[in-house]
Simulated assay, not measured.
Amino acid sequence: MKKILIIFLVITGAYIGWNYMFDGSGVNFAQAEDAVKVTNDTDKISIDVSSVETVIVPEERDDVRAELEGEGTVKVKKHGDEIKVSVKRKGFFWFNWFEMDKTTMTVYIPEDYEKDMNIELGSGEIVFKGESADNPMKLRDLSLNIGSGRAALENFVVEELVNHSSSGEVEMNSINAEAGSFDVSSGSVHVKNYSGKLDADVSSGELEIQMDQLFDDVSLDVSSGYIGLDLPEDAGFTLNGKVSSGNISSDFPLQDKEQSDNRLGGKHGSGKFEIDADVSSGNINIK
Rank of each mutant, 00 (worst) to 15 (best):
L264T: 04
D234Y: 06
T238L: 01
D256R: 12
F273D: 01
D251F: 00
S223L: 14
G265P: 00
A235H: 03
P253Y: 10
D276G: 11
S223M: 00
L239N: 08
L264V: 08
F237G: 03
Q213V: 12
D234K: 09
K267S: 10
G241E: 08
S249C: 01
G246Q: 10
L254Y: 10
S224V: 01
N247F: 02
Q213I: 09
A235Y: 04
N240I: 05
I275D: 12
S249F: 02
S249V: 05
K242R: 10
G225Y: 11
V218S: 06
Q255V: 03
S260T: 03
K257F: 05
L239S: 04
S260Q: 00
N247M: 10
E233W: 06
L264Q: 10
D216W: 12
D251T: 13
F273W: 11
D212A: 05
N262P: 00
G236L: 03
S249I: 04
D221W: 01
S223T: 14
S219M: 09
S250F: 02
G266R: 02
L229G: 09
H268E: 04
L214H: 04
L214E: 06
N240F: 11
A235G: 04
Q259E: 14
V243P: 08
E233G: 10
A277L: 13
A277G: 14
N240Q: 10
D217E: 15
Q213P: 00
K257E: 15
D212S: 11
S260R: 01
D261F: 08
S270R: 04
I227A: 14
F252T: 09
E274W: 07
G266W: 07
F215G: 04
S249L: 08
Q213A: 09
Q213K: 14
K257R: 15
F237A: 01
D278I: 13
I248V: 13
Q259F: 00
K272H: 05
Y226I: 07
Y226H: 15
L239T: 04
G269W: 14
I227F: 03
G241W: 07
K272L: 06
L239R: 11
V218M: 07
Q255D: 10
P253I: 06
G266F: 02
S219I: 02
G265S: 03
Q213T: 13
K267N: 00
D221P: 04
F237L: 00
D230Q: 08
Q255I: 04
Q213L: 14
G246P: 12
L264N: 07
L229M: 15
D234H: 09
G266L: 06
T238D: 05
S219L: 05
L239C: 06
N247C: 07
Q255K: 10
S270G: 05
S260C: 03
D251H: 05
S245V: 01
S250P: 01
D251R: 12
N262E: 05
G228R: 15
D216A: 15
P253Q: 12
I248Y: 13
D230F: 13
D278T: 14
